[in-house]
Design a protein around this nucleic acid. Structure first.
Length: 111
DNA sequence: AGCCTGACCTAGG
DNA sequence: TCCTAGGCCAGGC
């Protein structure tokens, strides 16, 4: 019920298909640079919601699928991303710079 | 109320 | 370049 989480979900839902962003970028956009860990925590609670949150489009700053282990199955997160055209090798997004979506520059006038 | 933890990030050695 | 430590904030026990 915390507005912080709601904002996180709002941002995550804005991520276009085939694009990804990072925990830190979302936290920075929300004004809590050190709150990157909270973004991951929010994702942990996200599956509890009825609403579909594309948590698979959120990775760490290095473009690595650090949260894949929290998805059902082995490569669920990777398969979801690959189905959107993202290239992943060894849990690492290859064209990360191309698909990276920065909420700070894309949503600067929203929320 | 206090302590531990976590899907992170940055800085210093 | 790899490894360690600290900060950050909310939730669970």
């Amino acid at each position: 019920m915390s507005s912080f989480y709601d904002k996180i979900y709002e941002v995550v839902k804005q991520i276009p298909v085939g694009r990804v962003t990072s925990y830190g970028a979302i936290a920075e956009y929300l004004g809590s640079k050190g709150g990157a860990r909270m973004v991951g925590w929010a994702m942990n609670s996200a599956h509890n919601l009825k609403e579909h949150i594309p948590a698979h489009r959120v990775v760490n700053r290095n473009g690595m699928l650090s949260g894949k282990h929290h998805f059902p199955g082995e490569n669920m997160m990777q398969e979801l991303l690959e189905s959107e055209g993202i290239i992943i090798i060894n849990d690492q997004i290859q064209n990360f710079d191309d698909v990276f979506w920065n909420p700070v520059t894309e949503l600067h006038h929203l929320l």
